[in-house]
Design a protein around this nucleic acid. Sequence first.
DNA 1: CCGCACGCTAAGCGCGTGCTTAGGAAAGGA
DNA 2: TCCTTTCCTAAGCACGCGCTTAGCGTGCGG
Lengths: 202, 202
Amino acid sequence: MSLPADLWPEVRPEAARRLMSAAVESFAAVGFHATTTRDIATAAGMSPAALYVHFPSKVALLYEISRGGHEQTLAMVQDVIGQAGSPVDRMRALVGRFVEWHAKRHVVARVVQYELRSLPEEEYAVVAALRRRIEQAVQGLIAEGVRDGSFTVPDEKLAARAVLSLGIDVARWYSERARKTPKALGREYATLVLRMLGSSAH
Amino acid sequence: MSLPADLWPEVRPEAARRLMSAAVESFAAVGFHATTTRDIATAAGMSPAALYVHFPSKVALLYEISRGGHEQTLAMVQDVIGQAGSPVDRMRALVGRFVEWHAKRHVVARVVQYELRSLPEEEYAVVAALRRRIEQAVQGLIAEGVRDGSFTVPDEKLAARAVLSLGIDVARWYSERARKTPKALGREYATLVLRMLGSSAH
DNA sequence: CCGCACGCTAAGCGCGTGCTTAGGAAAGGA
DNA sequence: TCCTTTCCTAAGCACGCGCTTAGCGTGCGG
């Protein structure tokens, strides 16, 4: 379960990035509370005290990872939805990219999606606001498709939730041993989603 | 977030059941590792030492909850799939029941679905075997539908995984504040799934 | 009525945790 | 060449954890 060094290329110094990478691996593997600062530091090739040079606390490290991952996801969703194209085309692209991201980055996606409750209240509120924006963007796209007749769903909010569920749950089960590439998975899931939304154009 | 006392009616004595209920609540709320034996015992109205009268360890408590939940789920899946009826009818019933179970029992479902990695290796193997049987049963039903022409999916295994993902992810987001009842949610998700599987009979 | 068994508690143990502190090494700038 | 800053380590602190133990109370059976 390797983590590309390009996950957070902008993080400086390199030692902080190594700590984040080590933290992501362990948070994904065993969870935030089962991960110790000694685990993180050792995996980063440092002593436990070094963690506190770069981060104020262990949970601050989780917050950086969580916020960054959510910001990346929101930016990607907004980028796709903001493109020109029919709701069907944009939904196909959105699901393809969303699922691909969760498959390709399933390690960090697992932390992003499943360690929310380990965040303190204020930090959780920040991340929850990002999540709402993602869901609202997807729901908006579905509403557009309903208006122009491409989609037929009785409950737009529920449909948005189902679409996101499929992508989010990829983080739970995808692994390097999966036979399907992230891109292929994204394409197939896009087909499933368009059918689910009642689109005949697929 | 209340838990019906009928979740494990067969567990005796009543003190053990109170401990399991308290454990489920806390495991669902903050996770296995963030839950302490003092948390569990206090919520059950006992001292920490009392836990060890009924369970050999904290993780044994988790295993009881996890195995029981998986057995209930497998029994329900096998019951539905074993009924007479077309693949479309049985899939509609299956998704309806599966989603309803995860919504209604979202607290224990959250423990069942998201605390697997906290189980020791041998206990995990037992639960993983139960999960494979669930997935194989769903995949078998999809294959039947493909054979009789009711479903059209390029990848039966992936379709089974997507179907289960929708249900499993309900455990993550459903709450008492959800506007939709578990039964209504099950019905709507069944419609979405039948469309997803390419069935026109819905 | 007495003794035994069961269920529980109070108190504690040994260990591991998140985080702190004092000091050292290396690099860079004056 | 010397001083300052940055990054790190070794060592440790205070606390909380999972679990154990000795003893008590209650209920039941002989």
